[in-house]
Amino acid sequence: MHPILETKDLRHVYSAGTPFEHTALDGVSLSIFPGEFLGIIGHTGSGKSTLIQHLNALLRPTSGQVLLGGEDIWKDKHFTRQARFRVGLVFQYPEYQLFEETVAKDIAFGPKNMGLQPEEIDRRVREAAGFAGLPEALLDKSPFDLSGGQKRRVAIAGVIAMEPEVLILDEPTAGLDPAGRESILDNLRRFQQAKNAAIVMVSHSMEEVAANAGRLIVMDEGRVFADGAPAEVFARAEALQQIGLAVPQVTAVFLRLRAMGLSLPPVYTVEQARRAILAAKEARPC
């Protein structure tokens, strides 16, 4: 399968030639495939945010390339603009970017900029609101009258309405209660399956990426530290701890149990752990 989005030896240097010079990305090469759920984790300052802003051409690489469907994202002005619609980016705390009088108008901002017909815009607004879990009754309200969680859903719907092939979200669940987190992640998965879109989620929470992502990329000091299925990545628990990241709590517990001599498979979600323990119990009834 061909990757939809690729980076090749991406480098980005902030304030080059000043005392504040800082290399945020140092040779990042990775691929994103259609329909996958990719988690990006890393410490604060590891280059995650800089990386995702390259993926939809908000930042221009100091050197290296970003390829969208095999073509350089900076090929020409028109393509760069198209790339911003094809690769949707939801920033951290996106609820602070709402500005329109009504929820529907705010969600329509992206599609309108794409130059779509009014009927198509209307269809997309309704559909995106549905994917983001917003009841239709809210569409005519002012976004400023909504609760924090609802505002965030409006902002996410505003990006979904562009029907991007790749949807990137920077900590979409930060500051939400557990129920709100689960519900937003659920909505994202539904969008991913309905449109076969790739989802890239940046997160601090190991539990969250472990439970949702099919593939994980770990960033450290501007480089890709690890890239693989969650099981492979979390198998390197010690290496992760050395760069200041923790494995999911349940994985840590199982690692300790294995170290004590119990024969258990490596797990990274609570559900897997439950099944593994039940299986172990069945094999050795006590």
């Binding site: 908000l58 920033f91 602070y96 970017q97 901002f109 900029n113 794409m114 990006v159």
Partner: peptide, 13 residues
């Protein structure tokens, strides 16, 4: 800066 980036990501020109 952040708001400009976010609106650009939605195709603001």
């Amino acid at each position: 800066d952040k708001i400009i980036s976010a609106q650009k990501a939605r195709g603001a020109d």
